[in-house]
């Protein structure tokens, strides 16, 4: 649940002198379960499960099956599942199937997206402490 707390107080984190370290999941890595961080994470491998982060980059070789909850999300790889994020960017190599709950979204030309992109006000993400049940 830590990830949701982040969303509501971005200023507090910004005041910290040193930025939180970057975590990265290599192309050869596979995670089954939950990834939970207050910082930034880069996924180049495979994740089956849920990711909570402040900022997430899904690399071109990355593959996620599950839900992503973050403030900023940038997708270059494959996602099957849902995104709950204030700012979402789908780059041209993105391949996403599912739902993107967003406040702002950017989709590059060439990106593949199948599903729905419901807009939500920022307060929705701050108050988000349990993910809604949807059928992707």
């Amino acid at each position: 649940m830590a990830a949701f707390a982040n969303l509501s107080k971005p200023q507090a984190r910004g005041r910290k002198p040193e930025p939180l370290p970057l975590s990265q999941l290599g192309a050869a890595a596979l995670v089954k379960g939950v990834l939970d961080t207050d910082g930034e994470v880069e996924i180049h491998g495979t994740v089956q499960g849920r990711i909570n982060a402040d900022s997430l980059i899904l690399g071109a070789m990355g593959n996620v099956e599950g839900d992503i909850v973050a403030r900023d999300v940038r997708i270059l790889g494959r996602l099957m599942g849902r995104i709950f994020a204030l700012n979402v960017t789908l780059e041209d190599s993105a391949d996403v199937t599912g739902r993107i709950f967003h406040n702002t979204v950017t989709v590059a030309r060439g990106a593949r997206f199948e599903g729905r992109m419901p807009w939500r006000p920022p307060s929705y993400f701050e108050a988000l402490d349990q993910l809604p049940e949807t059928q992707p």
């Binding site: 939180l20 370290p21 970057l22 975590s23 990265q24 999941l25 290599g26 192309a27 050869a28 890595a29 995670v31 379960g33 939950v34 990834l35 939970d36 961080t37 207050d38 910082g39 994470v41 180049h44 491998g45 690399g59 071109a60 070789m61």
Partner: peptide
């Protein structure tokens, strides 16, 4: 794409 994985101190994996 890096192949090495780094789980930083702020990250928890269950």
């Amino acid at each position: 794409t890096p192949s090495v994985s780094v789980i930083s101190k702020a990250l928890k994996i269950t």
